[in-house]
Simulated assay, not measured.
Amino acid sequence: MDPAEPVSRALAANLRAARQARGWRLEDLAERSGVSRGMLQQIETGRTNPSIATLARICSTLGVSIGRLVEPPEELGHVVRAAEVAVRPAGAGGQARLLINDGRAELWDFLIAPGEELRSPGHPEGTGELLHVNTGELAVTVGGAAFSLGPGDALRMRGDRPHVYANPGAEPVRFTMTVIYGGRQDPRYAV
């Protein structure tokens, strides 16, 4: 494979996306940038690589950096496969799975058995949590305030205070939670 091929593919896709996000046709970008429609079409289909000068004119017109237009797709998103997710015990018969994180936020999937509870001393200052109950009943206590949630309910809460997640029901409770760090990330789950 030509080493420039991944860059050409990224440039083609990113240029097309940037142009379309502005509602511009190839003709519109050509007129604004001074780069011919034919050249733009060849770039967007990956049939040619523009000179730096041509790329600079296109980027200036779109208001984006050259780096942004040649950014490979893997920099735009990252997939974590189910088999890669670590499962941690959560009480007797429960589990906590850190599905994905990016250094600023974490997405968790929890399963808590009936009668079980999970306690947290609180995360770093400025941390918040968003919870969504999928199945079962969830009782949450944070900083002395109590919340009862059922299937489909969601809660936004402070994560920087001691908190408890409890299952008061007769069935397991499954919920997803996003932890959003306002300052530094909890070192226990750092990327």
Rank of each mutant, 00 (worst) to 15 (best):
M1L: 12
M1H: 13
M1Q: 10
P3V: 00
P3M: 01
A4M: 11
E5Y: 02
P6T: 02
S8H: 09
R16F: 04
A18S: 13
R19Q: 00
A21H: 08
R25G: 12
L26Y: 08
D28Y: 06
A30H: 09
G34W: 01
G34Q: 04
R37C: 01
R37P: 03
G38T: 10
G38S: 14
M39L: 15
L40N: 00
E44H: 07
T45N: 15
G46A: 09
R47K: 15
N49G: 13
P50Y: 01
P50W: 01
S51H: 07
S51K: 07
S51V: 03
I52E: 02
T61F: 02
T61N: 06
G63H: 04
E71R: 15
P72W: 00
P72M: 02
P73W: 01
P73I: 02
L76K: 15
L76R: 15
L76H: 15
G77N: 05
G77L: 08
H78T: 14
V79W: 05
V80G: 06
A82L: 09
A83L: 12
A83W: 11
V85N: 06
V87T: 14
G91D: 09
G91P: 08
G93Y: 07
G93W: 02
G93Q: 01
G94Q: 00
A96S: 15
A96P: 00
L99E: 13
I100C: 10
G103Y: 08
G103V: 08
G103F: 06
R104C: 11
E106F: 04
E106M: 04
L107Y: 10
F110S: 00
F110P: 03
A113M: 07
A113C: 05
A113L: 01
P114G: 08
G115I: 02
E117K: 13
L118R: 11
G122T: 08
H123Y: 05
T127C: 10
G128L: 14
L130H: 14
L130N: 11
L130W: 14
V133P: 08
N134M: 14
T135M: 07
G136D: 10
G136Q: 12
G136N: 12
A139R: 15
T141D: 13
G144W: 00
L149W: 05
L149K: 08
L149T: 09
P151F: 09
G152V: 06
D153K: 08
D153C: 10
A154D: 07
L155Q: 01
R156Q: 12
M157C: 12
R161G: 04
P162G: 09
P162A: 08
Y165C: 08
Y165D: 00
N167L: 05
N167K: 00
P172W: 06
R174V: 13
R174T: 14
T176L: 14
M177V: 03
Y181D: 05
G182R: 05
G182W: 03
D186I: 00
P187M: 04
R188Q: 11
V191W: 13
